[in-house]
């Protein structure tokens, strides 16, 4: 059962990583226009180079 000493912190750490990613996305206003972002990927306008 000693393995729990590593595994529990690892699982918590991974979950925390996910939470961190979510908070980052939220702060970055990535939930402002979910419908638009879903459609934007279909447009091929800036496929060859990033939008300036």
């Amino acid at each position: 059962m000693e393995v729990l000493v590593y595994l529990i912190p690892v699982s918590l750490g991974l979950g925390g990583l996910g939470l961190g990613a979510f908070v980052w996305a939220l702060r970055n206003r990535q939930y402002e226009d979910p419908k638009g972002d879903a459609q934007r990927i279909l447009s091929d306008e800036w496929d060859d180079r990033p939008k300036p």
Binding site: E32, D33, P34, K35, G36, Q39, R40, S43
Partner: peptide
Amino acid sequence: HCAACITDVERALSAVPGVRAARVNLSL
């Protein structure tokens, strides 16, 4: 309502002199 709408609107507006950027929010 669609991907083409976003591109059309943004392109048309960006072409207007004086417009620095135009961004469509489709959800709103």
